[in-house]
């Protein structure tokens, strides 16, 4: 961790319009939960739907995308990354610091509201709220690492990230069962199911597979981002 890199990254992330954008995600989740908790019906099903599909399935990847790319892609785009890179700093230190900021932000803006929404909807029954919170913590970290990597390797990180989260995880994953094995969202569900001990959460990937895959993706994305950042090219502007 480099405190200066962390400070610059955090200010860039939370300052300006993006800071407000980040608030939309928890606000939406809490608003929907508050509305739903007043309605009658099967509370358990409702909670699983809101926390699973809206929270873990949609809002967490979108937040991860905004944050993961926001901690580095913006600086690469506008060229200000030069001021970090023209320093005798190990590249992995820049990447891990930015990743830590991204994960922390995702936790604050996604995991905390998930816990609150879960408690609001279903209380502490069956450990559902806790299960989804842990899942959001872990999936949020994996998304952050993945989207940070995208920010380093492509100038179209947001498009590529949306492609992964919406097209692959949601669209393809809906129709092709095999695609669900390679999906951060499904790994998260598997974690939620294991923590809550609740088969209704409906994970498609077993816990024993999900955890190693989450670890591998997070670590590999971080290592690759460090290597790619060390060879970052400022090219072809003439």
């Amino acid at each position: 961790m480099n405190p200066t890199v962390a400070r610059l990254t955090l200010r860039g992330l939370l300052g300006r319009r993006r800071g407000a954008l980040l608030l939309v995600v928890p606000a939406l989740l809490l608003l929907v939960s508050a509305l739903a908790s007043g309605s009658s019906g099967n509370e358990h099903d409702l909670t699983v739907k809101i926390l699973g599909q809206l929270g873990l399935g949609t809002l967490v990847p979108i937040l991860g995308l905004v944050v993961g790319t926001g901690v580095i892609a913006t600086e690469i785009d506008d060229g200000s990354i030069v001021y970090l890179l023209a320093k005798p700093l190990p590249r992995w230190q820049i990447v891990t610091t930015k990743l830590a900021v991204a994960i922390g932000t995702t936790w604050v803006f996604a995991a905390v509201p998930t816990l609150l929404a879960g408690l609001l909807l279903y209380g502490t029954k069956d450990g559902v709220a806790l299960g989804y919170t842990v899942a959001t913590l872990i999936a949020g970290a994996a998304y952050s690492a993945l989207f940070l990597l995208l920010g380093v390797v492509t100038r179209h990180a947001v498009v590529a990230g949306l492609g992964y989260a919406l097209v692959w995880e949601s669209l393809v994953g809906n129709f092709v069962a095999g695609a669900r094995t390679l999906s951060v969202q499904q790994w998260g569900r598997s974690v939620a199911e294991a923590v809550a001990g609740d088969a209704a959460i409906g994970a498609d990937v077993s816990f024993g597979v999900a955890v190693p895959l989450l670890l591998v993706v997070t670590v590999a994305a971080t290592v690759l981002a460090s290597v790619k950042l060390a060879g970052l090219t400022l090219a072809g502007e003439e």
């Binding site: 860039g12 030069v82 001021y83 005798p88 060390a230 502007e237």
Partner: peptide, 23 residues
């Protein structure tokens, strides 16, 4: 290339203007 230690000796003034304008 790929040698961060050279930056102890090099100062770079890039052409582009963006430089964390919130600082």
């Amino acid at each position: 290339w790929r040698n961060q230690q050279v930056y102890r000796q090099i100062g770079l003034v890039p052409e582009r203007e963006s430089m964390y304008d919130y600082l």
